[in-house]
Simulated assay, not measured.
Amino acid sequence: MIIHILAGGPTDHHPDLALYEKEEVVWAAVDRGVYHLLQKGIGPYAAFGDYDSVTDDELQWMKQQTNLQIVPKEKNETDLELAINWAVSQNPKCIRIFGATGGRLDHALANVQMLVKGLQKPIDMQLIDHKNEITLKRAGTYSIAKSDAFPYVSFLPLTETVTGITLNGFKYPLLKKTIEWGSTLCISNELVEEKGTFSFATGILMVIRSTD
């Protein structure tokens, strides 16, 4: 099972969702993301939110289109975290999150950090917008394919340090380097081969694939 979640971020930061519909997926949506998804003719399997970001008329229309789970405005989790917790509980192969960037910075940073929930299962979890695909990796060795849509690849430490990072098949290769918070050593690399590898010994690494 693959679960896609559309959050309520600005629509101009959405990628072309049609690019991610080639596989059979289960859609969930969050707050105003429910409205945007229904506008695209997609009915979410699950919908979460307090719906404080939609008008009364929009809310009534949404209720006519799908079954909404309305949660209190005052709570300990964001609406998106509730949706991610539900998605993780379904034990899918992959979770892709859209509409989670481009608005408030506090929410965007928290949304990136929530990718840790995928590592804990483990489940492949990605946060995707019109310019970036973001995922987290634990220590290990990984292959990565060249992509015309996302040609730039950056590696950032999510933990205080990431040790032993090695890059092969990249324009700027590395051999067993350590990167720390605040380092830009691994920003904006590119694959020069159709497939490359990256590996590291300790820590959690954020992998960001970006457009130009």
Rank of each mutant, 00 (worst) to 15 (best):
L68F: 04
D52G: 07
V54P: 01
E77C: 11
M62V: 01
E81C: 08
I42W: 00
F48R: 00
P44G: 02
K40A: 13
E77A: 14
Y45N: 12
V71N: 11
K73F: 12
N76V: 12
E77L: 14
M62C: 11
E74N: 10
G41W: 02
K63W: 06
K73E: 15
E58K: 05
D56N: 12
E74M: 09
V54C: 03
N76S: 15
V54R: 06
M62T: 02
K63T: 08
A46T: 03
G49H: 06
G41K: 01
K75E: 06
W61M: 07
V71G: 03
G43Y: 06
D56G: 08
Q64N: 13
P44V: 04
G49M: 09
Q65N: 09
L68A: 06
Q69T: 13
T66G: 08
Q65P: 01
G49W: 04
Y45D: 14
P72Q: 03
P44K: 01
D52Y: 02
E74F: 10
G41Q: 07
Y51I: 08
Q64I: 05
Y45V: 09
V71D: 08
P44Y: 01
K63R: 13
I42F: 04
S53I: 01
K75H: 04
G43V: 15
P44A: 06
A46I: 10
N76K: 13
A46N: 11
L68K: 07
